[in-house]
Design a protein around this nucleic acid. Sequence first.
DNA 1: ATCGAGATTGAGAATCAATTTCAAAATGAA
DNA 2: TTCATTTTGAAATTGATTCTCAATCTCGAT
Lengths: 165, 165
Amino acid sequence: MKRVAPRKSSAATARERLASWISARGLKATRQRDLIVDTFFSQTGHLSVDELLDKVTARDPSIGAATVYRTMKILTDAGLASARHFEGGQTRYEAALDRHHHDHLICTSCGSILEFENERIEELQDRVAEQHGFAVTHHKLELYGLCKRCQEKDEYFRKRFPDPR
Amino acid sequence: MKRVAPRKSSAATARERLASWISARGLKATRQRDLIVDTFFSQTGHLSVDELLDKVTARDPSIGAATVYRTMKILTDAGLASARHFEGGQTRYEAALDRHHHDHLICTSCGSILEFENERIEELQDRVAEQHGFAVTHHKLELYGLCKRCQEKDEYFRKRFPDPR
DNA sequence: ATCGAGATTGAGAATCAATTTCAAAATGAA
DNA sequence: TTCATTTTGAAATTGATTCTCAATCTCGAT
Ligand SMILES: [Mn+2]
Ligand SMILES: [Mn+2]
Ligand SMILES: [Zn+2]
Ligand SMILES: [Zn+2]
């Protein structure tokens, strides 16, 4: 009878890593931190602090916004989350454990975010940097526009209400 | 005796275009606006509102920051300047008249900004968008790191003070 | 289990860029 | 010139984030 080795959820792994990262520098484990980290890793996608705070206060209304900010900064420093600064809005965080570098397509109508990886683009970026004697540490590639669904919605309204005015 | 056709400075052209853009929508020409636009186009590079305000108040100390913000927004709407939101700092503006789209290399040590165009990267971006059924309106590609000079400075200090502690 | 140095907390204040408000001044078409 | 409309500068406001601080918690050493 085959047994799959019990796979640790990446949330669990993240909590472990955070624990060692925290103790490694004399920080302390707290109930609030655990709750926030737990909540964060139980979500997918790109979460703003406000959105996260909502979920967190649903579980414990006494937790303050500052603590969520502080905790997400720790997660980021520990390499377990990454902060994204898309156009206009607040900072958004996404889980970073076991994830490749990737870039984003952002729908300016509905706010949905798609991810992509393109090795060829990365190479060309490296080449550009090289040509300028530049040592790149990180980069940002974001494509803004309309997702498929929002294009279709637009199309629908254009058909129903042609040539307004 | 050959004569080159007198070439209008792009600053002058920008002022003309702005004038028609302004009158086209019932706005009014003002001394402050002229001064700000003049100052902006007499500079090169990527200017923050603060930096621009400094130059502007040197010429007329009575001009307020709000007016500079408002004027740069008009220039942007008119397509004569473009706003750039690099990591961390304030919005920076660059002249947009007669300029191709381009992207940036930003030195995180000295703040210098290099520009580049790469048609191949743009094509690949289009392909990515297409694959996701995404209609891109604009994008942002920014490479952060150390410029040549800052790398050399680092190198110099590493040689002079090896293995500290 | 208790202690105590040091870390963490939540609330509210502070910061910072940017926008808005508002009363006074400027613009420009008639 | 008139005068509806736009613009201005100063100050207030906004919104995201960080900071401050007194009270509370954590955890290694007793
Ligand atoms: Mn992502
Ligand atoms: Mn540029
Ligand atoms: Zn959409
Ligand atoms: Zn540099």
